[in-house]
Design a protein around this nucleic acid. Structure first.
Length: 553
RNA sequence: UGAUCCAUGGUGUAAUUGGCAACACAUCGGUUUUUGGUACCGACAUUCUAGGUUCGAGUCCUAGUGGAUCAACCA
């Protein structure tokens, strides 16, 4: 009766299962996540991280974290630390210690020498412009460099001199001798080593020549005996070269498999553009809660589990995609609904006086989370003077308005049912205070009043409530694909309302004691979290609650 | 005027590999509710086009069409 449940496999899982079945690599699955330490991890990286780590986990394999640090002029240890922290926070454990492509520089150098010895590489003193000129175009074949057939001994000599620092930056490069007429541009004698007299964040000044991506990435995969090297679609044209080096060097045959990277609406994933937002002061840093970075999302209150679920739901395929950010937000809400502490916060307070309440201040029990009995209860102070939301009262409300207005009756969450008896306005007709009476026998949990209330309002006690600041975080951009307009800067689409600071909110006393990792639901408003970078009571909005009333209006 | 990859609802992925197009998000409508939240129910597709093979095609073949990618001493 073992009913075999058919579970849909994505195309990479199909490849993995075929390899497992055929006994390739003794049934071993070993992946890697290879970030370059020149920026912070963003939403796009989370997809690559989830795919690499979760696929390996699913098939009993391991995943290496390897820093692709072959360009000393853009990379920094600051980024290494931030990347490690973000991956751990996302909930993944890499195999062993983190690896670094720079640790393989000696080996990579030997690989290059072997290539030269076998007549598969040559030193070219042509300038970058000259090399580009002979490269041809995608539709026209390239032409051989005049230095292409330099004798092996000479190549060896020059390459050694490059390493010894006898030549200036850009004076010459080492090129693989592949095929200048290949329709694949990457096969037209790609540069594999360049001279850079630059300080490397790990190897210091040991080297003044550095391998290019194509001569570092695949070789690192082989050195680590990575079985499946999963990367994004734009590397598809590099695969031929990747395999060419494996063949010429006779090294471990890692297999590169490309999948479509994830694009999310209203977010950008260009590290250059993100850095520009930081440098030009559009945001306060890489971890600004508006940023699509892992650290930004963390500070905004997105749970790691929600991000993982999101990546899982997005799936893995080869076609270009634009995921609606609403799916991410839905995953966040789903998580937060289950775990967040419900609290009452009035974001735009207006005073309401209960004219017939004369018990001073009393404490009322409130559920911390109706979805989770075990979360328990806390007590909320209540007295004759409270604050409610300004937009929960209308002098002349429309038909379907369930809230307060003259002679209307509502329930105060966790407290009593009240009826509005009067209100005051200023010279401009703005409501300044509301008066109401309460039904003593309508107390939450022991309501015997028989009074019907259509709506329920949240509130805070006027005296006991705390002033807090709320940072309403919105979309960073006003356009779903700000980077898709070739003639426009992304900053033209910067959303001026991406951060709205509200210093006027009032919260129940409980908020004075919340921790940085406690997710909160401000009832009827949204999910919030204490800002990990602020000193006082500053709360960042994670995401709104769904609001069918806002839509109706 | 090259090469490579891709094409299923508004969005993203499925379809047990040739057998009733499914799931999620979004949208719209409804039920429940001391959060206009949650939960629950319902609605929402001639599988890019045209031919072909077949009892049968989203799936295979042919030709189109559309999109993406490739010419850094970046990764």
């Amino acid at each position: 009766m073992t009913e075999e449940k058919y579970k849909a496999l994505n195309f990479i899982e199909q490849i993995l299962e075929e390899d497992l079945e055929s006994g390739k690599h003794q049934g071993r699955v070993h992946t890697r996540f290879p970030p370059e330490p020149n920026g912070y991890l963003h939403i796009g990286h989370t997809k690559a991280i989830c795919v690499n780590f979760e696929l390996a986990k699913k098939y009993g394999g391991k995943t290496n974290l390897r820093f692709d640090d072959t360009n000393p002029t853009t990379e920094d240890t600051e980024y290494v630390e931030a990347i490690k922290r973000d991956i751990e926070w996302l909930g993944f454990e890499w195999n062993d210690e983190p690896y670094f492509a720079s640790d393989y520089f000696p080996q990579l150098y030997k690989f290059a020498v072997k290539l030269i010895e076998d007549g598969n590489a040559y030193v070219d003193p042509s300038s970058a412009e000259e090399i580009a000129a002979l490269k041809g175009t995608p539709t026209e074949p390239g032409k051989n460099s005049p230095y292409r057939d330099r004798p092996i001994a000479e190549n060896l000599q020059l390459f050694a001199e490059m390493k010894e620092g006898k030549h200036a930056d850009g004076a010459m490069v080492l090129r693989a001798k592949v095929d200048m007429t290949s329709p694949n541009m990457h096969m037209r004698d790609p540069v594999i080593y360049r001279i850079k007299h630059a300080h490397h964040h790990r190897t210091g000044d040991t080297w003044c020549i550095y391998p290019m991506y194509d001569f570092a990435h695949g070789q690192s995969d082989s050195i680590e005996e990575i079985t499946h090297s999963l990367c994004s679609l734009e590397f598809i044209h590099h695969r031929a070269l990747y395999n060419w080096f494996i063949e010429k060097l006779g090294i471990f045959p890692s297999r590169q498999i490309e999948f479509a990277r994830m694009n999310v609406s209203y977010m950008i994933t260009s590290k250059r553009k993100l850095l520009k937002l930081v440098n030009d002061g559009f945001v306060t840093g890489w971890d600004d809660p508006r940023m699509p970075t892992v650290s930004g999302m963390r500070r905004k209150g997105y749970p790691a589990s929600a991000i993982r679920t999101f990546c899982d739901k997005v799936g893995v395929a080869k076609r270009d995609n634009l995921i609606e950010v609403e799916l991410l937000e839905s995953c966040v809400r789903e998580d937060l609904n289950a775990i967040s502490t419900r609290v009452m916060v009035v974001t735009d307070p207006i005073k309401l006086t209960i004219t017939n309440f004369d018990q001073g201040t009393i404490l009322l029990p409130a559920d911390n989370n109706p979805e989770d009995e075990a979360a328990g209860k806390r007590e909320v102070p209540f007295s004759s003077e409270i604050f409610i939301e300004r937009d929960d009262f209308m002098i002349d409300p429309p038909k379907k308005y369930f809230r307060l207005g003259p002679d209307r009756t509502v329930r105060l969450k966790n407290a009593f049912i009240i009826t509005c008896t009067d209100y005051q306005t200023d010279a401009d007709g703005n409501v300044t205070e509301i008066m109401a009476t309460y039904y003593p026998d309508s107390k939450s949990g022991s309501d015997t009043s028989g009074v019907k209330a259509k709506g329920t309002l949240h509130w805070v006690d006027a005296k006991e409530s705390l002033p807090i600041a709320i940072h309403e975080i919105g979309r960073l951009f006003t356009d779903p694909t700000p980077a898709s307009h070739e003639d426009k800067e992304i900053t033209e689409f910067f959303n001026d309302e991406s951060l709205i600071i509200n210093d006027n909110a009032r919260a129940e006393p409980y908020l004075a004691s919340v921790k940085y990792d406690e997710h909160l639901q401000f009832m009827r408003k949204g999910y919030y979290i204490l800002d990990e970078n602020a000193d006082g009571l500053v709360f960042n909005k994670t995401v709104n609650l769904k609001d069918s009333w806002a839509k109706k209006k």
